[in-house]
Write a protein that binds this DNA or RNA. Structure first.
Lengths: 349, 349
DNA sequence: CTGAAAGCGCTTACAG
DNA sequence: CTGAAAGCGCTTACAG
C-alpha cells in the first residue's frame, strides 16, 4: 500500500510529452485529440495511437498548467458561515453537484472562526484560484464585494440579498412562511405568533413579511408583540419562545423562522409543560431528517436548499460578471405535516 | 458594485512584471524580496521601492503559476461521506483551521451522491491539484488507495482504520465508550445494552470493544443479545432501540455508539412511554449543541473531533508519504451529564 | 495531415 | 548588488 519500493522514488507524473513520445507525434497533437479540437484533421490510425498511449500511461492533464494557459481555474469558491449548520450543508451539496456537472471543482470555506479566517479566504481567492465566488449567508462584509470587483472576480450572494448588490439568488422565503401560516389558519388558529430571525438577516425579513401578509389576508392582526426576534439556533428559539409563552394573550400557534430555532421552541414547551400540539401548534421553515425524531415530530415547510446551491453555480458560471442577477428559486415548497400542528383547543371540529 | 465602467474591461490581474517595471528592477528580484530569499543581498532602498510597488499595485502572486513551478499545490483534499453529518462538520472545521495555519487551502468533497461523484473527486485529485488527501469515514473503497499510491499522492485515513493501510488517525473510541459505561456503572446499572454502529465500521468495532471491556472489568456480562447493530442515523437508532426494549430482560441503560442514532433512541422511548432516565438511562458518543435541547437533554461523551481534523492535516503535511502513521488522538474526552442518565429504579440511594 | 513556437506567471540556479 | 535565462506542463494560432 503506502510502502513504495524505495523511499526515494517520488513518482513523476506522466506528462503530455511522455504520451506524445510514445505515440510518435507532437505534444500539440495529443492535446488537440484530447480536447476534440474540431479544426484538427488527423488520420484515424494516428488518433488511435494517441488514445492508446493515453490509456497505457493513464495520463491526466495537469490542471494547474492548463489553467495557467487557459486562464480558467475550473474552480468555484463557496463561502459559508459554518459547516455545522445543516441548512448550509444542503446548499453545499447542491453546489457541489452542479460544479461536478460542469467538470469543475468546488472549494468551500467557512468564516465561522472569525475575520482572520475570512480574510485568508479572500486573499487566496485573489490569487487566481477561482473563477467565481458564492457568498452564502450573512457574513459578507461589504468590503469584500468591492475587493472582488476590483480583482474582477465574479461573485453571487446566495440566500441573502443586499440593497446595493444586485447579484443574488434566494429562496421564496415569503411564500414558505405564508404556506405555514395558511396551514395554521386552515386548522382554525387566529393568534399565530412568529419567532423571527435576526433583525439584520434578509431571510428573516422576508419570512416575517410572509407571516404578516398571510395573516392580514385572513383578516387577522399582527401586533408587534406577536413577533419576537431570535437567532437561528436552539438557544435563540428557546429564549424567544419563553418570552411568547409568558405573555397574557398567549398564542395558540407559532411559526418559527428556522428549524434549528424550533428545536429550542419544542424544548421550552416540554420544560414549561405546554403540550404540543394540544395547547400550542408549532411549524418551522426548512426540513431536516431529524424533524421526524423530535418529540413531538416537527411539522415543517420543506425548502429546495439543494436546488438553491445548484442554481447558484449555474448562474455564476453562465452569466456575465457585471450583469445583475435577481432570482428567486421557486417551486418545491411543501408543508410536511408531522403532528406538531393541530386545531386549537376548543375549536369547532 | 458589480457595475463596471465598461462591460468589456475584463480586469487583467497585476503580474510580477508590472511590479518589477514600476520598481525599476527585474521580476526575479521582486520574487525574491517577497519570498524573503536569504541569499538575496539587496540595498534597503531598492527593497523599499519593490515593497512600495507591491503595495501600490496590490499585487498577489498567481497561485497556479507558482504551484506549477514549485510542484506544490499548497492545497489539501478532504473526502467525507456527507456534508449533512455534523460529526464530519467538526472534522472539516479542524482541518480547515490547520490548513489555513500552514498557508494552504482545503478542498472538501463529499461522496454521498454516489460512486460517480467519488470517481470525479479521485479524477480531479489525479490532476495535480492537491498535495495530499484525507479520507474520512467509511467510503474509501480499497481501489482508491492503490490509485493514489500509483500517482504518488500521500493520503491518510481519518476516523477509520483499514488492516492493510497503515496510515490512519483516529479518536480513542474505546476509551470514549468505556467512559460512558463506567458512568452508568457508577450510577448502579448492571444491565447495560449497546446500540452499536454498522458491522463494517471501524469506529463501531472499537466502541463495542470499549463497552465490553468496561463491563467485564466490573464483573458484568455482555451477552451477544445486549448489543444491536445500527447505522449512525436516527432511523437506525430507533429500530435498534425498539428491538432492545421488547426483549424480556430489558436493559436499565443503553450506550448508543453515535449521537445521531441516540436521537432515534429518545424518540422510540417517547413513543413507547418508556421514561428516560426513570426507566432507562441513555448516553451517546459525540456531543452536539443540539443535545442540550432534546427531551430529555442527552448525556454524551464529548470527543475532540476538531482536533482530529487538525491533527490529520498536520500529519499529512509533515510526514513522508510512505511512512506509516498510526495515531490515536487522546485526551479531551469528557462526559457531559445532561440528565438522560440516573440511577436505575429501585437502586439503593 | 502534423509539427514547431510562443507564452500563461511564476521561481531559482547561474552570471556578472 | 542585480539581471537574464531556463523551465514547470499545458494550449493555440500559425506554418508547412
Amino acid at each position: 500500500m503506502s510502502s513504495s519500493t524505495k523511499a526515494s522514488d517520488a513518482k513523476k507524473a506522466v506528462t503530455l510529452l511522455d504520451v506524445a513520445t510514445r505515440a510518435g507525434v507532437d505534444r500539440s497533437v495529443v492535446s488537440r485529440v484530447l480536447s476534440d479540437d474540431p479544426r484538427l484533421s488527423i488520420r484515424d490510425e494516428t488518433r488511435a495511437r494517441v488514445l492508446a498511449a493515453v490509456r497505457e500511461l493513464d495520463y491526466r492533464p495537469n490542471a494547474l498548467a492548463r489553467s495557467l494557459r487557459t486562464r480558467r481555474a475550473d474552480t468555484y469558491g463557496l463561502l459559508i458561515p459554518d459547516f455545522g449548520n445543516p441548512v448550509y450543508a444542503s446548499i453545499i451539496q447542491g453546489a457541489e453537484a452542479a460544479a461536478i456537472a460542469r467538470d469543475c471543482v468546488l472549494m468551500t470555506g467557512s468564516v465561522g472562526a472569525g475575520p482572520a479566517q475570512a480574510a485568508h479566504h479572500l486573499d487566496v481567492i485573489g490569487r487566481g484560484r477561482v473563477d467565481g465566488l458564492l457568498l452564502a449567508g450573512d457574513h459578507t462584509a461589504g468590503a469584500s464585494l468591492e475587493e472582488l470587483d476590483r480583482r474582477g472576480i465574479p461573485w453571487l450572494l446566495v440566500n441573502r440579498r443586499l440593497p446595493r448588490a444586485r447579484r443574488w439568488v434566494v429562496l421564496d422565503d415569503e411564500e414558505a412562511a405564508g404556506l405555514a401560516v395558511r396551514h395554521l389558519i386552515g386548522l382554525g388558529h387566529e393568534r399565530i405568533a412568529h419567532v423571527a430571525g435576526p433583525r439584520d438577516a434578509d431571510t428573516a425579513r422576508r419570512r416575517m413579511r410572509g407571516w404578516r401578509t398571510a395573516m392580514r389576508a385572513a383578516g387577522l392582526s399582527t401586533p408587534a408583540s406577536a413577533a419576537v426576534v431570535s437567532d437561528y439556533t436552539p438557544e435563540g428559539g428557546a429564549a424567544a419562545t419563553r418570552e411568547l409563552l409568558t405573555r397574557r394573550d398567549r398564542p395558540t400557534a407559532i411559526l418559527v423562522a428556522n428549524i434549528a430555532a424550533a428545536i429550542g421552541t419544542l424544548a421550552v414547551c416540554g420544560e414549561l409543560g405546554v403540550s404540543v400540539p394540544g395547547e400550542l401548534s408549532v411549524v418551522a421553515v426548512h426540513d431536516l431528517a431529524l424533524a421526524a425524531f423530535l418529540r413531538p415530530a416537527l411539522t415543517t415547510v420543506r425548502t429546495p436548499l439543494e436546488k438553491l446551491g445548484e442554481r447558484a453555480i449555474e448562474l455564476l458560471a453562465s452569466t456575465a460578471p457585471d450583469a445583475p442577477i435577481e432570482e428567486v428559486v421557486t417551486g418545491s415548497l411543501e408543508l410536511v405535516d408531522r403532528g406538531s400542528t393541530a386545531p386549537p383547543r376548543g375549536a369547532a371540529a
